[in-house]
């Protein structure tokens, strides 16, 4: 929980430091996304108020850039690189493997909120193609077989993390 508080301060801090100029809009949205994992409507209203940019324009910017999301994401965000090198080395096979194993397709989150599948244009690790990124970790030279075992491992990890988080809260209470 302490963690969530410090992150929330990050967005609050950005708001505090903002000079209310239009060029602050994107950095503020980035700070909000970092804090909440997505850009909630309430955040857009607050930013609109601080910067005096109409709500419609804020919404226009949020939907223009691929970085911003309007819905919450899962604990683990899997980004399949769809750069040219990854494409010619079979990234579509990776995507369908993830669909098979986790049951989610592009831009979807599973019902438990564990995984979100996204596609990214290029993560710049082309010589290790095909590549996926899980949160900030990059995995290269994947085959459907290697990926299947990786996904199974990740599922265990994310479930363990949840379990630990819930017991920690109980202890602190």
């Amino acid at each position: 929980m302490a963690n969530a508080k410090t992150i929330m301060n990050g967005f609050a801090q950005a708001l505090w430091l903002s000079q209310g100029v239009a060029s602050d809009l994107i950095p503020l949205l980035q700070a909000a996304q970092e804090a909440y994992g997505y850009v909630p409507e309430r955040v857009m209203e607050v930013i609109s108020g601080v910067t005096e940019i109409p709500m419609a324009d804020v919404y226009g910017v949020v939907t223009f850039y691929t970085q911003f999301r309007l819905t919450p994401r899962g604990d683990m965000v899997i980004k399949v690189c769809n750069g040219t090198a990854c494409h010619v080395n079979g990234s579509t096979m990776l995507e369908s493997t993830i669909e098979d194993v986790l049951g989610i397709s592009r831009d979807q989150t599973d019902d438990d909120g564990l995984f979100t599948l996204e596609s990214v244009n290029c993560v710049g690790c082309c010589s290790l193609a095909p590549v996926i990124m899980v949160n900030d970790e990059t995995y290269g030279s994947l085959t459907p077989r290697k990926l299947t075992s990786l996904l199974k491992r990740l599922r265990r990890e994310v479930l363990d993390a949840r379990l630990n988080a819930s017991t920690e809260v109980e202890v602190s209470e």
Partner: peptide, 12 residues
């Protein structure tokens, strides 16, 4: 803003 898929010169 090295957006070309398949390019990583600027990053490096």
């Amino acid at each position: 803003d090295e957006g070309d898929p398949g390019a990583f010169m600027d990053r490096s």
